[in-house]
């Protein structure tokens, strides 16, 4: 009987002592947290993509609350999130950011481009790139190992049957992590309302491109000639769309003999 009492009392005493110490410590070591930080953090997407330049959404929320970062610091969130953040802090959104989407400027893939050698290494674009710029004949083309798919924190990218990444326009927030990851710099950020895209990134000579890839831009200037607003220009053997001029009439799309000029909605 005595030992039970002793055990109960010693545990109760231990618990009481520790509780008092913790209670004092809680008062003494209290850290003041800006309530706005948590509110902003709740509004942010929470993907910790790092496109804003801070270490995750928490870092960004702290910087915004302190006034070190503008209310529209969140790249992925876009205008909507910026407005909510501005509402919390009682500020106005300074400038309107055009919603962007990332795009893969290549349609080649495994079946349409010929190979120089068989790559049996680690299935990663950055690894394959180090072995003589990858196994494809086209040194500008998509390697198709999906480094961008793994980099995307929003699950907006996926590899299609031809190992070419496809962008889910609804999920893409335009944070640009995939563009930074791609060793070939094929992915670029374009305005979400952009109508026409060139699905080729190769600056090789047209003769070479014609031989190694069936969907390459051969610089024939068919699109340049048909365009009424001079939005499509062939530079360095490659058609380039000027998105500020393009009005989306789509006349060039049907003219491309190599099927590498297309609308965004079709996504090829």
């Amino acid at each position: 009987m005595w030992i039970i009492l002793k055990a109960a009392l010693s545990m109760a005493g231990l618990g009481l002592g520790l509780g008092i110490i913790l209670g004092i410590a809680h008062k003494k070591f209290a850290v003041e947290v800006d309530p706005n930080v948590e509110k902003i953090l709740n509004v942010l997407p929470g993907a910790n993509c790092g496109a804003c330049g801070y270490a995750g959404c928490e870092g960004a929320a702290e910087a915004i609350a302190k006034g070190e970062a503008p209310v529209e610091a969140c790249v992925a969130g876009g205008h909507e999130i910026a407005e909510q953040v501005a509402h919390i802090l009682g500020k106005d959104v300074q400038r309107k950011r055009k919603p962007t989407v990332s795009l893969v400027h290549c349609k080649g893939g495994k079946s349409k481009v010929s190979h120089r050698y068989r790559y049996d290494g680690i299935p990663s674009c950055s690894m394959a790139q180090q072995v003589a710029s990858g196994p494809l004949m086209c040194t500008y083309g998509c390697l198709g190992f999906g480094d961008c798919v793994r980099a995307c924190p929003f699950g907006a990218l996926s590899l299609d049957g031809n190992s070419i990444p496809q962008v889910d326009v609804d999920k893409c927030t335009g944070c640009g992590l995939c563009a930074k990851t791609c060793p070939k710099d094929i992915i670029s950020l374009v305005p979400k309302d952009v109508p026409v895209i060139v699905f080729c990134n190769s600056k090789d000579k047209p003769r070479i491109k014609r031989n190694i890839c069936t969907v390459s831009c051969i610089g024939c200037k068919a699109c340049e000639k048909v365009c009424e607003v001079d939005a499509v220009v062939v530079q360095n053997n490659l058609a380039v769309v000027n998105y500020e001029k393009c009005n989306g009439c789509g006349k060039c799309v049907g003219k491309c003999p190599r099927d590498c000029l297309n609308f965004l909605e079709l996504k090829a």
């Binding site: 030992i3 002793k6 055990a7 010693s10 545990m11 231990l14 618990g15 520790l18 509780g19 110490i21 913790l22 410590a25």
Partner: peptide, 22 residues
């Protein structure tokens, strides 16, 4: 207190949990 032989696990859990909090 001669209670260590059977009380050490709950006692240590108590101590460690509070220590980590602290």
């Amino acid at each position: 207190l001669h209670v260590g032989e059977f009380l050490y696990i709950p006692a240590f859990i108590l101590v460690i949990a509070s220590l980590v909090q602290f």
